[in-house]
């Protein structure tokens, strides 16, 4: 545990854990709305913010937050109003955001594409004191929203039309989800990088789904996976000198594969338990007379 003696590692671990919590916490609502790739889009837009930060000598983290929040709001508005050509508009926003980032950072006197790379793929070991402050504040906001408004966000993400009839401020909640996702992207930017952010939002949720039956359990397991892989990836990169962002994402995908392999026998056992435990319920298998071929398909 000697890595804990270094300040940069303490900062890196704190940042990584916060990302491990916040990314799946927001991602679960995006997956529920079937907008799993929204985080990826916001990541592209955030690049313009990073570039602008260098150009104007502002903090790239805060500038990226500002620009990606604006971008996320714009995406939500496009989804709202421009139903017909929504995908085209989104594509322009994504690629415009990426091109803007490259352009601004090259115009900046101190910037180069090398700076951009640390934001694209993360640069955990160079997380500064002020970065940590920003990450802590932003993560607190994300946790507050995703836990505090979980019932409302669940309802809106599950069935927007129904949510409107329960009187929920659907448009405001959609905007809040978009803003929270944008904030999460900038929280995760220094840890896994803008291009890999979306993986941490989506893959832990997908992995958790293999085991869970409820939304609450999916949320808890996804955050658990998020924290485990971010710590695991950070520590691995300390000992093995591998890029932490890529390590974290590969670990997450590994967790997904492992849980998927684990889930199949688990589901079988659950089905068996239900069949024996509840004789009144639906039997797990059809009772077919022995004389017939039991190929599992009986014509109705």
């Amino acid at each position: 545990m000697d890595f804990l003696n270094y300040d940069f590692m303490q900062r890196a671990l704190l940042a990584a854990v916060l990302v491990g919590i916040t990314a799946p916490a927001v991602g679960i609502y995006l997956v529920q709305r079937r907008q799993a790739l929204m985080g990826d889009g916001i990541g592209h837009v955030a690049m313009t913010g990073v570039g602008l930060g260098f150009l104007l000598s502002w903090s790239p983290v805060w500038m990226a937050t500002l620009v990606s929040v604006l971008g996320a709001v714009l995406m939500e508005l496009i989804r709202w109003y421009g139903r017909t050509r929504g995908d085209i508009a989104l594509a322009m926003l994504f690629y415009g955001g990426m091109a803007g980032g490259v352009m601004f950072i090259n115009l900046a006197p101190t910037g180069s594409n090398a700076n951009l790379t640390s934001y694209l793929f993360g640069s955990l070991s160079t997380v500064s004191e002020s970065d940590v402050t920003a990450i802590v504040l932003l993560a607190a906001f994300v946790v507050l929203v995703t836990l505090g408004l979980r019932r409302q966000l669940f309802a809106v993400s599950q069935d927007e039309e129904f949510a409107r009839v329960t009187g929920l401020p659907v448009r405001a909640l959609n905007l809040l989800t978009a803003i929270t996702a944008a904030v999460t992207v900038t929280v995760a930017m220094r840890v896994v990088g803008l291009l890999l952010v979306s993986a941490l939002m989506v893959v832990p949720v997908a992995a958790a789904q293999q085991l869970s039956r409820s939304f609450a359990a999916t949320f808890a397991i996804a955050v658990g996976i998020g924290v485990t892989v971010t710590i695991g990836g950070t520590v691995t990169s300390y000992y093995q000198d591998v890029p932490p962002g890529a390590t974290i994402v590969l670990l997450t995908i590994g967790a997904f594969i492992a849980l998927t392999a684990l889930a199949a026998p688990l589901a079988r056992r659950r089905a068996r338990a239900m069949a024996t435990g509840e004789p009144a319920g639906d039997p797990a298998e059809c009772a077919i007379p022995a004389s017939r071929e039991s190929d599992g398909k009986v014509g109705v």
Partner: peptide, 30 residues
């Protein structure tokens, strides 16, 4: 809106993430 109960035209109550029957029905109580 609590005075109105709405059943939209759906073939499924499921979303992109697993949810229990209670979790879905709880949305109606909000």
């Amino acid at each position: 809106w609590a005075r109105v109960g709405y059943v939209p035209q759906r073939t499924t109550a499921a979303g992109g993430v697993p949810a229990t029957v209670t979790e879905i029905v709880s949305s109606g109580r909000l």
